[in-house]
């Protein structure tokens, strides 16, 4: 049992660590913004914006109603592409991890398709789906389905055999073995795969929107550049992408805190 009680000294250290977790990153970001500002002023560039100009750009987007519209457009595409990848990748990975012949049959094909950058699929996606929402959704699906499939597959293959043997001892077979033991045992690693895949999906939506559609944060960046070299809006788009990416990752990380999966992440 972890029996360390909150005695005075330990609690003080803990408070200091918690404060450090909050203030250290904020300090780093402030330093980064300062350095950026100073660098732009020294260089005398009239195209590249200072942080203040970027903030003004974001405000301008908000006032025009474009901020929310573009964010929603990008998140909408990620939701469909990524959601589809979870629905396909998790069951597929579980099956491939469990049935050896399926693994031998499918794994080489997966390993060939996996390293092809989703960006390379853009022309194909436009050919198949046109310049509509379907094309970026397809690209996001492609980008995220492989990490999810592979992590689910590896999770089943690396599972401690003692869980399977215990389950078989209690007479579990077939679907109930899958549902009651294989799936929960694989879940922590599946969630890790989902986290990685969501990061990739977010990378790809921006790239896809630069080419295939006329809304979203990726489109904002290209459009701001092409329509009058508005680099304040270009960088605003980049900052928004970064901030939303951070929020998405924090949301998926919350999944790792559930009691049903916390055992799978070691001591933290």
């Amino acid at each position: 049992m972890s029996g360390s009680s909150g005695n005075g000294k330990g609690a003080a250290v803990r408070v200091r660590v918690e404060r450090g977790k909050l203030f250290l990153p904020i300090g780093t970001i402030i330093l980064f913004l300062l350095a950026w500002d100073v660098a732009v002023r020294i260089s005398g560039s009239d195209l590249f914006p200072t942080p203040i100009q970027v903030a003004k750009g974001i405000k301008e987007l908000a006032e025009k109603g474009l901020l929310l519209k573009y964010i929603v457009a990008s998140l909408f595409r990620v939701s469909w592409g990524f959601g589809g990848a979870v629905l396909v990748g998790v069951p597929l990975g579980l099956v491939l991890g469990w049935f050896r012949p399926a693994f031998f049959a499918m794994n080489p094909l997966i390993q060939i398709l996996r390293p092809i950058s989703p960006i390379a699929w853009i022309p194909v996606a436009i050919l198949w789906f046109g310049v509509k929402d379907t094309a970026p959704i397809f690209l996001i699906f492609l980008a995220s389905v492989f990490p999810i499939t592979v992590s689910a597959m590896a999770a089943v293959q690396n599972m401690q055999s003692v869980y399977i043997r215990a389950a078989q001892n209690f007479g579990l077979t077939g679907f109930s073995l899958f549902r009651r033991v294989i799936f929960p045992a694989a879940l922590p690693q599946i969630i890790t795969g989902i986290r990685i895949a969501l990061g990739v999906a977010w990378l790809v939506v921006v790239a896809a929107e630069m080419i295939a559609v006329n809304s979203g944060l990726g489109y904002l960046i290209i459009d701001a550049r092409n329509a009058g070299k508005r680099y304040d809006l270009v960088v605003a788009g980049m900052a928004l992408i970064g901030a939303i990416g951070l929020v998405l990752d924090l949301l998926v990380r919350r999944l790792e805190k559930f009691d049903e999966v916390r055992w799978g992440y070691g001591q933290r």
């Binding site: 003692v162 869980y163 209690f170 929960p184 999966v261 055992w263």
Partner: peptide, 12 residues
């Protein structure tokens, strides 16, 4: 029922 040295209790 088999009781395993490496512990077969389900952690989830």
């Amino acid at each position: 029922i088999f009781v395993f040295q490496e512990n077969g209790v389900f952690p989830w």
